[in-house]
Every structure is written in C-alpha cells, then in structure tokens.
C-alpha cells in the first residue's frame, strides 16, 4: 500500500512587507498506506499549504515529500485531488469532466474503451448515472462535488488528497457525502489525506486525526480513532468513544483559537 511521507518540510511565503512568512517548519508526518488521515487546525495553520505541496502544485522551501520512498515534485499520476471549490470545467459535460482526469493521466485525447467503461462505472459509483451529458451548472453543489469525486476516483489513485471537499455544502448534503465517501473508500482502499476544519467530520471519517497548531504550522496532537467500520452502519456520533475523542481534540484546538 502506498505511503505518503512529509520529512522536515519547510515552507515560507513572501509577506506584503517584504519579509518571509513562515507557514510550515520542520513538518514531519507519515500517512501509512491505506489509512484515512485527517489534518485539522485553525485557519492559517498551513493545512491547505500542506496538501498543495503534496499535490505538487507548489514547491517546498526545504525538506521532502515522499510517495513510497521516492521524492515527489510534480503532480503525480498516482494521486488525485479533490477541492472545496470543485473546479469542474463549465464547458465540459459531466462525463467529459471525469474524462479530463484520465486524458491528463495518459496524455492522450482519445479515450480507450476501457476508460469509457471506467467513467461509466465511476459515475454510477457516485450515483450520477443518467447525468453524463449535463453541464456542471445544471447540477446542485452536492452533485457537482460527486463529479469532483468521480473525476478523482476514475484515475484509480493510490493517494487521494482532499482539501475541505465538503466545506461549501449544506449540513445535510455534507452528511450524505461523508457517508458516501466512506462507502467508496471501503471499495477503492486508497490512502487518503483529508483536510477539514470540522472536528466531527474529522473523527467520523478518519483512522487518525492530526491536530495542527498555529503558525508556523506544526503537529500538536495525533489521535487514533478506533471506532469500528463501516461507520455509516450505526450511529457513531452517539458512541462514548466518539465523545471522548471529540473532547480531547476540542480542548487541544481551543487552545489555538
């Protein structure tokens, strides 16, 4: 199982005054293969920076990010990202949007029969059969993020990087998509690095919750979540263990607010 590793990662940004703003310093984290790991922390703690570096979208100042031992620099075909802003191409139909992830993976315009089938089955997986020829603006926000998920999953990624994917959705849609994500993950079993600022979401989804402190971003606490899966099968949030983890995490986060 593919493993994602951050080793002594340092990242600074230029501030308007000209000096460097330290976003992440000495950040080390191992996401073991097949695990669902969530990073949570106050806004500005560098959690999105972390994900964008792992996705190869921005360079690091020093340190390394490794995928199965080899150093990552550019966006890797073994990874897929899911964004809060979704980022569907408005001129492409739903099927064509999912196809884009495959076309950029193989660097071929033309889809093979196998890829066509893959798009079909992935759309079925996220419950969008029949919407292949719709344009994004014709779908609700929740459906659009399902397309975002399908685009990521069709690439059959070893690692799924998710940047607050449900942050812009209403509470009900978010709960539904959380369950769907868990069900999908149960089938594809890729390694997931998930970013959120929603504590309940973090505990509900993850094997491990990484709590980050304020800038410069550093790991403050790591909590293992041992609640049995599949978690959409029972009322996890009513479990004593859920409440216990939530209390510990909340205390830790509050100190950073």
């Amino acid at each position: 199982m593919p493993e994602l590793e951050f080793v002594n990662v340092r990242k600074t940004y230029a501030s308007p005054t000209g000096d460097r703003l330290l976003a992440l310093d000495n950040f080390t984290l191992k996401v073991e293969g097949g695990r669902f790991v969530t990073v949570i922390g106050p806004s500005g703690c560098g959690k999105t920076t972390l994900l964008r570096m792992a996705g190869g979208l921005i360079p690091l100042d020093s340190g390394e990010i490794r995928l199965d031992g080899s150093v990552l620099a550019n966006p890797s075909p073994k990874m897929s990202m899911v964004f809060q802003g979704i980022g569907l191409m408005p001129w492409r139909t739903i099927a064509a949007n999912v196809a884009l992830g495959l076309q950029f993976q193989s660097h071929r315009q033309r889809l093979t029969d196998e890829e066509e089938r893959l798009i079909e089955t992935t759309l079925a997986l996220v419950g969008l059969t029949g919407f292949e020829h719709y344009y994004p603006h014709q779908l609700s926000g929740g459906m659009q993020q399902r397309v975002g998920l399908a685009r990521a999953l069709a690439r059959q990624p070893e690692i799924l990087l998710m940047d607050e994917p449900f942050g812009a959705l209403d509470a009900q849609t978010r709960a539904v998509l959380q369950d769907e994500l868990l069900a999908l993950w149960g089938r594809v079993k890729s390694t997931v690095l998930f970013i959120t600022h929603d504590l309940d979401e973090a505990i509900y989804l993850s094997d491990r919750v990484v709590i980050m402190g304020r800038r410069p971003g550093r790991i403050k606490e790591v909590l293992d979540v041992n609640l049995p899966r599949p978690r959409y099968g029972y009322d996890v949030r009513a479990e004593h263990e859920f409440a216990r983890l939530r209390a510990i995490a909340w205390k830790s986060i509050r100190e950073e607010l």
């Binding site: 996705g55 190869g56 979208l57 966006p75 890797s76 075909p77 897929s80 990202m81 964004f83 802003g85 980022g87 191409m89 001129w91 492409r92 884009l100 992830g101 076309q103 950029f104 993976q105 660097h107 685009r151 690439r155």
Partner: peptide, 27 residues
C-alpha cells in the same frame, strides 16, 4: 487560475492545459 490549477493537479502539461482550459474559456 483555479481551473488551471485543477488541471495541473490532474497532471496536464502546459500544452494540454492551453487546449483544455485556456482556449475553451476564451470562446
């Protein structure tokens, strides 16, 4: 620029992104 970033994350080359993102958004 966000759509360009999404395309980059999917592994699109400069040329592919031009074709699949920049040109259609200019139509």
């Amino acid at each position: 620029s966000f759509l360009v970033e999404v395309a980059r994350s999917l592994g699109g080359t400069k040329h592919e992104i031009l074709r699949a993102v920049v040109l259609p958004s200019s139509i």
